[in-house]
Simulated assay, not measured.
Amino acid sequence: MTSAAPTPHTLLTPGPTPIHPRAVQALTRDMLGHMDPVVFALNRDIQQGLRDMYGAAPDTFTALLAGTGSLGMEAGFANLVESGDEVIVCANGSFGHRMAEMAARYGARVRLVTAPLGEAIRPEDVAAQLDDHVRMVAVVHGETSTGVLNPVPEIAELLRGRDTLLTVDAVTTAGMEPFHMQAWGVDYAYTGAQKCLSAPPGLAPIAVSDRAFARFHARRSPTPLWYADLDGLRDYWVHQSYHHTVPVNLHYALHAALSAALEEGLEVRQARAAHIGQAVYHTLEPLGFRHYVQDPAQRLPTVLALRLPDGLNDAAVRAELRQREISVTGGLGATAGLIWRLGLMGESARPAPYRTLMLALEDILGVPGLAGRFTETLTEIEDAVPA
């Protein structure tokens, strides 16, 4: 007696995202030691791919931390902040506030710049807190918790000519749209493998400028986080000396997913996310769904935050979707029960999973024709794009 094949899961969360098929295949490669010449060659290719993804200078140090994006966040503060440092942290959502907490734990005097939920950080508010004592400005490029895109280029411009480092959380932007580390003047950037690249969770790709390394080497005390010490990482990634055992098979998968992203092109991926997001919104708008972020220029292309219609039972509908192997994420904190956050990163930004969602909502909400409307709208949007 044979059992039926399991229903494929439709993952529409703002992370993790469905694993790219090439990354799935890469995971099955034979294990090699982390000091094997083949692995070092793979790592060099990964480093160059990360420079391309981040828009970094040719000699920028890049690496993979063996942890999720939160390790990427913490490593920046552990290596580049010392007790008593004045640090501006921009916080307009959960992950900006996480930055502030981490910076404070490493002894920073945090100057918090905030904005209301659903609104971007205002550069003029950063400028008002900025002076010659500020050692770092930290900002989340795409605030996953609210679907807001923060104005990193404008904030970076405020730091031109200053001895102030810029740390950017690129977790929901890098790998799905152009990121210009060198041109903007970003000193430390990080993301998570499971976000825009659609690789398995467990790696945090980072990029570190020469200015950041100079700050690191001028520290008055050793880095408190040994595991992600920048010199220790560089010993392994550049000098091929032992530091710690890296997850080799995750490196295989990240390499495959990163290669696929760069081959597709970041501009193409950016357009893919935008088109799917527009089609989803126009399909659900007649049901009463509305953009949570009012200003179109402040909407994060990779996380579609939708205010729910009056009377829609958030928990019940998402539970029913989960029974059908469809995962949709609700709000965090103050937005719980008020919004959905739909992921448009990597392999989730495809027509098929969103058509699956629309078919399910047709049945759950008793509204026929959603899947057809989605397909027609997406076709119209793509046809309107100049060749």
Rank of each mutant, 00 (worst) to 15 (best):
P8Q: 08
P8M: 09
P8T: 06
P8C: 10
P8L: 05
P8K: 11
H9E: 12
T10F: 05
T10E: 03
T10I: 13
T10K: 04
T10R: 10
L11T: 09
L11P: 00
L11K: 05
L12K: 07
L12V: 04
L12I: 07
T13D: 02
T13M: 09
T13P: 04
T13A: 12
T13I: 06
T13S: 11
P14M: 05
P14S: 06
P14W: 05
P16I: 02
P16L: 06
P16R: 05
P16A: 09
T17I: 09
T17Y: 00
P18T: 07
P18K: 03
H20S: 12
H20D: 15
H20N: 14
H20P: 12
H20M: 13
P21M: 07
P21E: 01
P21G: 08
P21A: 07
P21K: 10
R22K: 14
R22W: 03
A23N: 01
A23G: 12
V24A: 13
V24C: 04
V24Y: 02
Q25R: 14
Q25K: 12
Q25H: 06
Q25L: 13
Q25E: 15
A26E: 00
A26R: 03
L27F: 05
L27W: 02
L27A: 11
L27Y: 04
L27D: 01
T28C: 03
T28H: 08
T28V: 04
R29Q: 09
R29N: 09
R29C: 00
D30E: 15
M31Y: 09
M31K: 10
M31C: 02
M31L: 13
M31F: 08
M31N: 09
M31E: 12
L32R: 14
L32F: 07
G33M: 07
G33P: 01
G33N: 13
G33S: 12
H34S: 13
H34I: 00
H34V: 00
H34D: 13
H34G: 03
H34R: 05
M35W: 11
M35D: 15
D36C: 11
D36R: 12
D36W: 04
D36V: 08
P37S: 08
P37R: 09
P37T: 09
V38L: 13
V39P: 03
V39I: 13
V39K: 03
V39A: 01
V39Q: 07
F40K: 06
F40I: 00
F40S: 07
F40Y: 14
A41M: 02
A41P: 04
A41S: 15
A41T: 15
L42P: 05
L42F: 08
L42Y: 03
L42V: 02
L42K: 10
D45C: 04
I46K: 00
I46V: 15
I46L: 04
Q47C: 14
Q47S: 14
Q48C: 04
Q48I: 04
Q48Y: 09
Q48A: 14
Q48E: 15
Q48R: 15
Q48K: 13
